[in-house]
Write a protein that binds this DNA or RNA. Structure first.
Lengths: 163, 163
DNA sequence: TGCGGATGGGAAAAATTTTCTCTATCATGC
DNA sequence: GCATGATAGAGAAAATTTTTCCCATCCGCA
């Protein structure tokens, strides 16, 4: 189980995973070793799935975000598998959801500009037959974080009477 | 400028930033020092904005994704500032865009379940008067990566005749 | 009372990052 | 053609950090 201290460790690591373990320990009131062991455990359990570098979209020329809503009449397992495989080939697609409601699928696409989006779109529809597509562009990214909320993590270690 | 080697370094670091510099150097055909210096430079220039731990949404009980489309008649600078400040207080909101088109703002919200979304929604509208709100839920996250596409990064070092 | 499991701590070993010094290459000006 | 300075690469050493090892403490329970 994840306790209060683990949660604080996760909070630190979600913001900046270059902080030395000794410093994390200091902040959460532990020495290096137990702090290190907690981090190890959370990696083994899959709570922490990895550590990655975050890039500036402007600096890598991918500052335009497009949301692509897809409504299709194709609903077979096979078609979805094919679709998912095609999408995975496009690094421009950074998020891909199957939706409830009117829209069947939603993509978030990162490109330099509208022209590049159009080129992406043509390459996409050349690869697979999708249905109705509707695209909207973001003017401004006001917040975009990889940090998930931690207030919902499963409660403290269950006490004896709860087991 | 970012050259071919820098791009390969970024590609590695976007997937996994725990790879030792010596190993990155080996993969891109450089020794440790020049590879380290390239990474340093990209951090100083702000190409790399940070390194973070990625958590498993299931394991931290935030596996439900809701997209919230907001249409408002409030368009003043002040209102947006207030709105942005309110949003930043909610760790459930992981993405926040100002949009072109019909919808004015789009939020992506991470919560454990529909009930938690409803609670979030009530807390949000208690804090600020927003206009029309429409929420759709994702059934499945097929792809979600922090890695931006790198094929658009500004061209190779300009050669003499191009300057 | 004593045992086993879980958790914390200090110190040492191992690995990695960071610095320092030295070369090679190349475009440029003389 | 040849010095010169800027740019980029390399190896070795120093500094820092991670990782391991061994031991102490606490707690529930038989």
């Amino acid at each position: 189980m994840i306790d209060r201290i683990d949660r604080r460790i996760l909070s630190i690591l979600q913001e900046d995973c270059t902080v030395p373990v000794a410093e994390i320990g200091r902040r959460v009131g532990l020495s290096t070793t137990p702090c290190w062991r907690r981090i190890q455990k959370m990696e083994e359990e899959g709570v922490i799935t990895g550590r990655v570098a975050i890039l500036d979209p402007k600096k890598v020329n991918a500052k335009v975000t497009a949301f692509v809503s897809i409504t299709t009449n194709q609903h077979s397992e096979d078609w979805l598998k094919k679709f998912a495989d095609v999408i995975r080939e496009f690094p421009e697609v950074v998020e891909f959801y199957r939706m409830a409601g009117q829209v069947d699928y939603l993509l978030r696409v990162a490109v330099p500009d509208i022209e590049a989006y159009d080129s992406f779109y043509k390459r996409l529809i050349a690869k697979i037959d999708i249905g109705d597509v509707s695209t909207t562009f973001a003017m401004e990214q006001i917040k975009n974080t990889s940090a998930l909320p931690l207030q919902y993590v499963a409660a403290e270690k269950p006490r004896a009477e709860e087991r």
